[in-house]
Simulated assay, not measured.
Amino acid sequence: MALDVVDLRSFYAAPLGRLAHRFLAAVIRHWWPDTTGLAVLGCGFALPYLDLFRQEALRSLAFMPADQGVVHWPPHATQSLTSSALVDPDLLPLPDGSVDRVLLVHLLEVTEIPRDVLDEVWRVLAPSGRLIAVAPNRRGWWASVDTTPFGHGQPFSKGQLHRLLRDSLFSPERFSEILYIPPFERQTTLRMAPLFESFGRRLGLPGAGLLVAEATKQLYRPVMVRKVVRRSLPQLQPALAPLGLRRES
Rank of each mutant, 00 (worst) to 15 (best):
K227E: 13
P136M: 08
L104I: 08
Q55C: 11
R101W: 03
P48H: 05
D90I: 09
P242N: 06
I28N: 09
L104M: 04
A193V: 06
D119E: 12
M192T: 06
G204V: 03
R130F: 07
G97E: 09
P95R: 06
L190W: 08
S157D: 09
S198Q: 13
Q187F: 12
Q55N: 10
F63K: 02
T147W: 11
L108N: 07
S128N: 13
V134H: 10
L24A: 14
W142Y: 05
L19Q: 15
A39S: 14
E112N: 00
R123S: 09
L205I: 00
Q55A: 15
F170L: 05
L169S: 02
L179T: 02
L161H: 05
T36V: 13
I181K: 04
L195W: 13
S171K: 10
V228M: 09
T82Q: 12
L165K: 02
W31G: 06
P222A: 04
L131G: 00
S60R: 04
R163L: 13
G129S: 01
P114H: 00
L81I: 01
R59K: 14
P93F: 00
F156M: 09
V229M: 08
F156K: 07
L164H: 00
I113V: 14
L52P: 06
L169Y: 12
T216P: 03
Q68F: 10
W142K: 08
Q55P: 04
R174F: 00
E248P: 01
A77K: 02
